[in-house]
Design a protein around this nucleic acid. Structure first.
Lengths: 224, 224
DNA sequence: ACCGCGATTTGACCGAAATCAACGTGCGCC
DNA sequence: GGCGCACGTTGATTTCGGTCAAATCGCGGT
């Protein structure tokens, strides 16, 4: 746990949360930040614990999930570099309402929640930035609900792949940013279902080997 | 469309959004508010339209939904009296990302979005209140995702019924606040599935006739 | 390059819920 | 109080995706 270095400060300042702040709020927030690296599988916080820290992903991926009474895990969100973790609860209840875990080696910034609240109570630009980020994540989760209820597994996977492709390009190839296991969870699928979805997509110009994906024609994915 | 009367002002002031505001912000917000009554099936706004108004339900129920390319509707949220409608998008993109429709005769307050934004940029208490409401709705939508992925139809219905019952009571009976059609949508079910779920719950001490529901032992619903 | 384990795929099976179709029932309206 | 339509229910059928088990792949360590 240490103060952010120059590169990390740079990264922080380009985040959606901080990039639109005035100078005062910005430097106040930077002063609050500490940086930490956590290893694979380490948990940042657990459901029900008192919420005292706001996290921000600088590198790697963080997964938030619910634990059912029967011990099953349900993935809720995957946070990419730049995303805020814990925003959902930090500004509302007292406790985290989900658990968060690093998927691999992850670099994160920590903000003491109480301090952020105090700061936001004085700096409208910070409060508005928080509201904006929240609104964005909220809209995302709503479209997740719509997707779940509307599209089949292959459709959801196709849509995910399309989002990864630069628009208008053809013969795109890229690496999945994380394990298929994790992707399955994010799409609300069992790993087997994801695998089968990929097989089906082969006939629509998608080839997969390991984490490498090739898409012949992103437009064609629309038609699945 | 008219200025809120005394009763409506009273209601507005007790909302989560306004109840924690300082005096200045509160009266400024009340000055922005207009009140309107809309009839069944009327739409408040449609997906993709430029977002210019923040709505707040005073009486009745409002439903927000997505329209799929094939014309199917997916219910996202049902807003009860006291809820904010359109918050998800108002603070983020330019346009509404869902459509909203009155389920019956609904009384709502309207706030011009631009003015609210301007006000929030100056009044941190308002900005924080917005963030708080958003965070609450966000947390709700996350647990909807978890429910969808984790529970079967009868379980979701049982859970819904349990939430309607005062805790610890027995032999509770009440009226569903809206049509079963709508309830089905909210739970992510086809109407037929909801009906079947109710049938199954009969053997767990639930009786339904029309919109009237009786629950013998809310605790027993846990075990479905 | 080889090994070994965990991740992924494949197959068989099953259960849940959507769909389609037909039938009952309640509710508002006259 | 009766009529009619929309809402709800029920049944039959199908599809989707979850689960379990077994085979295979791929990647990291040596």
């Amino acid at each position: 746990m240490m103060r952010p270095n120059a590169w990390e400060r740079e990264t922080l300042m380009s985040l959606p949360l901080l990039s639109r702040l005035g100078l005062e709020s910005l430097s106040a927030m930077l002063d609050l930040a500490t940086v930490r690296t956590v290893g694979p599988r380490q948990t940042l916080f657990r459901e029900g614990e008192p919420a005292d820290t706001l996290y921000c992903v600088l590198g790697g991926y963080v997964r938030t999930f619910h634990l059912s009474p029967q011990g099953r895990e349900v993935d809720l969100l995957i946070h990419e570099p730049g995303d805020l973790v814990g925003a959902s609860v930090c500004l509302h209840g007292q406790n985290y309402c989900a658990s968060a875990q690093a998927t691999d080696a992850v670099k994160i910034a920590l903000f003491p929640l109480q301090r952020v609240r105090e700061l936001a109570a004085v700096k409208p630009d910070l409060a508005l930035a928080l509201a904006d980020v929240l609104a964005g994540q909220f809209a995302g989760s709503l479209s997740t609900i719509a997707d779940d209820r509307l599209h089949t597994a292959p459709q959801r996977v196709a849509q995910y792949l399309k989002k990864q492709c630069p628009s208008g390009a053809r013969n795109v190839s890229f690496r999945l940013p994380y394990q298929k296991n994790l992707l399955a969870g994010q799409l609300g699928l069992a790993p087997e279902a994801l695998s089968r979805a990929f097989s089906q997509l082969r006939r629509h110009g998608v080839s997969v080997r390991g984490r490498l994906v090739q898409v012949n024609d992103p437009e064609e994915l629309q038609s699945v």
